[in-house]
Computed example of a mutant assay.
Amino acid sequence: MNISGNTIFIPGATSGIGLELALALRAKGNTVIVGGRRTELLERITAEHPGIHAVRVDTTSPDSIREAASQVISEYPEVNVLVTMAGIMRIEDWTKPEGFLATAEETVTTNLLGPIRLVAAFIEHLRTRPEATIMTVSSGLAFTPLRITPSYNATKAAIHMLSETLRLQLAGTTVKVVELEPPSVATDLVPGQRESSFAMPLEEFIAEVVMLIETQPDAREIQVERVKFLRYGEARGDYDETVAAVNHLDPHGK
């Protein structure tokens, strides 16, 4: 993906990583359209950040995705980059008979069906562009699980494999598939994460991501240094120790 000269749609960019990435990419000379559910929030973003555009989209709704895609393609026909940023992270306890199923289903709908439907809505158009990119967003937890977020881990692992497979299918076309793999970042994704000493500062994360896009335009995976501990535990041969460290366990999982 080239760092500049793109028209980029980022659903899920009204806060956190999505918004900061949108602003950073706008500063690099791209046309950026952010997407989100709350019209008033989109209006505030466009007022506070001149040059940022906005389209309402609810990525849990197939109809909303289709309508948003139609609007984006109609109003911004040069759109050539889709960043499937929208996602949620919920704590679940599967050892209890009640309370986790609805949360798990919501997580799958948002984190997995949402990106699938977004790609389906844009793929035909993207293939008409001379150069195009689908940027998926997985997580370091796609490779090393956090005990308290099973559905989140699973959906991000699925996004990783979806990205790998789409890249195979789109080989030879004008569409590249790039996977962004954040570590824990200081946002409000889950309560307390913004204040966590383990989380990477948001500004630091965005700066490194932009640097990687700029210096590695052909990269298949965007990996800041902090995520490599999670990403490569199995390859290093210390997967059990990595899982234990992330979950504050001893190496035997106790």
Rank of each mutant, 00 (worst) to 15 (best):
T7N: 06
F9I: 11
F9N: 04
A13Q: 01
A13P: 04
R26A: 10
G29W: 04
G29T: 06
G35A: 08
E40H: 15
P50N: 13
V55T: 02
D63T: 12
I73R: 00
S74K: 11
M85K: 06
M85C: 15
A86T: 04
R90L: 14
I91L: 10
D93R: 13
G99N: 15
A102D: 15
E106L: 12
E106A: 14
V108A: 12
T110V: 10
L112I: 09
G114Q: 03
R117S: 02
V119P: 02
V119M: 07
A121F: 05
L126E: 01
T128S: 09
T133I: 06
T133V: 09
S139V: 08
S139A: 12
S139C: 13
P145E: 04
A157Y: 04
I159L: 08
M161S: 11
L162S: 06
L168M: 15
T174K: 00
K176A: 14
E179T: 07
L180I: 10
P183D: 01
A186W: 04
L189C: 07
P191L: 10
F198T: 11
E204S: 10
I222G: 00
R226G: 05
K228E: 08
F229M: 08
L230R: 02
R231I: 04
Y232S: 08
E234S: 12
A235P: 03
D238P: 01
Y239H: 14
D240K: 15
D250N: 15
K254I: 12
